[in-house]
Amino acid sequence: MNKSVQKLMFVMSVLGAISTLGGCASPANREAMQAAPVASLHQSEHSVAVRTSGGGDTGAMDSSNIADADFKSAIESSITQSGVFKTVIQGSGADYELSVSLVRLSKPLAGFSMTVTMEDAWSLIRASDKSVVWRKPITSTFTAGMGDAFAGVTRLRMAVEGAARENIAQGLKEISDLKL
């Protein structure tokens, strides 16, 4: 085997190692997106049904995205933990309908620190008369640095999860302030 072929094989194996280190992305984890419980939030006696939209699956060749089902689960768990609503109901029959739409998820392509910005449209509707009780756009940002993870794909996923977690925390705080 001549030198040029050996060099080519060496470079190919290194590129393969880089691909492994860079890796392919995994979707944002629902548990990691759950907001930390805050004791000072107002606890309503009403029930809520949660609906999410605008998210997307993470393909094998993609960067980390937020699936609607995972975001919905994270919001529901956050509500349950914080007590902002008494119960979370699946489907119809709740006192309120909370809709959270992912408007924009801004992610870097590369970098030592990964900063993700997320904008969601939050709207709360009274189920009895379909009146809009509250609606607001909420923007959140989270940065994951080299100290958080070595692999870029992992830092990006952590930044996406952090932005979602912060967005949920802000949204529930706003709802708590309504004193329903």
Binding site: A17, L21, G22, G23, A25, M61, M114, G152, R155, L156
Partner: peptide, 12 residues
């Protein structure tokens, strides 16, 4: 350079 990469991209 490897840790800088966030992975691959796709159409969406």
């Amino acid at each position: 350079v490897a840790p800088l990469f966030t992975g691959c991209a796709v159409n969406r």
